[in-house]
Design a protein around this nucleic acid. Structure first.
Lengths: 196, 196
DNA sequence: AAGACTAGAATGAACATTCGTTCTAGTCAA
DNA sequence: TTGACTAGAACGAATGTTCATTCTAGTCTT
């Protein structure tokens, strides 16, 4: 029930394909990346690719699901290891910043790809589970009295909007220093904007 | 000098094409939109389209430049009619909210299209003139003592990040009410996050 | 030897772009 | 005023390429 439309057997070959596709998609875009490109970059033949994946879209879908699941479980861990909304939200931002630095392609794929554009019927990124979790952290803060009363989605945007914007700027090459350098500053702003 | 790589003569026919292309690009994406699609939607023939525009990319480029110029002059007007950083930033957000409601396609094109993906050599949206202007509003506020001292780009992200996120949510169909309904709330958060 | 996997050539559809032609409106000559 | 001439605007069928996908012939693995 929790699961995915496109379950894919994990083998070294599929990992090769997914890794190559992630890089190509985020560097040149989905439509500028041809199957021959992926064949070259992954050293997996056309036949094998179509043995494992239904079609090109299936590769993107599988990628998307893998990455969403990964973020989802990271956020769940944060919920498990931090008690207050304050700590949870801060940890979430710190995690996103780390991920952006260590695997920019993952973050770029999650945030920038207009999924509806090339994955028909794909719900928008911002309503995927991890982003719902972020919203829930803020709402919990409102219930516990840490966060002032207001429209939940507005509060969530206030808390995470600044950080997400910095991530975008970093990925677009506007920011030179690594994101964690800005964590304290942006977090102070974020929390001040909603704290009671 | 201020101008554009792809100057296009403005005629009824080109307006037709640009209008149709804007809608199609933002609804289905650049790569899912074929020239025949644009021909049908604009009632302008293939030959004429290629008479006015170098190629499909030229249409997108022309669209982008038109929209950027339009936002740029709106922001300049805000700078001319509002004195304080507080008023300018608030007016900027109000303007973006209005534009999103009245012409979602314009906003969608400006914010979401991964321009580098289909317009090679296109600098990222977030370093286009209007976004620089937004940053300058915040910096001016720091100089006038309205905004607390901090890294300029972080301050700008804090002020505008929440609003931009709401715009994204609205365009992705997550928000039901029109954006101006949220203006007061998000602005309070935004300003509180950086005010001295 | 059977099944899973790999390979890469072959296929056919879709598409951006070109090109030769037609149309339109303006200008000029008589 | 009429008719000839011109320039550029508009047209859309034809072209050639690209690319996702399929197919056939193998090669491992157990």
């Amino acid at each position: 029930m929790a699961t995915t439309t496109a379950e894919i057997k994990r083998t070294p070959a599929t990992e090769q394909v997914l890794g190559a596709a992630l890089n190509l998609f985020t560097e040149q875009g989905f439509f500028n990346t041809s199957i021959p490109d992926i064949v070259k970059a992954s050293s997996v033949s056309t036949g094998s690719i179509y043995h494992y994946f239904r079609d090109k879209e299936g590769i993107a879908r599988s990628l998307y699901e893998t990455l969403v699941e990964r973020m989802e479980s990271s956020f769940s861990e944060i919920e498990a290891t931090h008690a207050t909304a304050h700590d949870r939200c801060r940890a979430a931002i710190a995690l996103l910043f780390e991920l952006t630095e260590q695997e920019p392609a993952v973050m770029r794929f999650m945030l920038f790809s207009r999924h509806k554009e090339f994955i028909p019927d794909q719900k928008p990124v911002c309503s995927s589970r991890p982003f719902v979790q972020m919203r829930e952290m803020v709402v919990a803060g409102m219930e516990s009295g840490e966060v002032r009363e207001m429209t939940p989605i507005v509060a969530a945007s206030a808390v995470f909007g600044g950080a997400l914007r910095l991530i975008q700027l970093r990925l677009d090459g506007i920011l030179d220093a690594p994101l964690p350098d800005y964590l304290d500053e942006i977090w102070q702003c974020a929390w001040r904007s909603v704290a009671v």
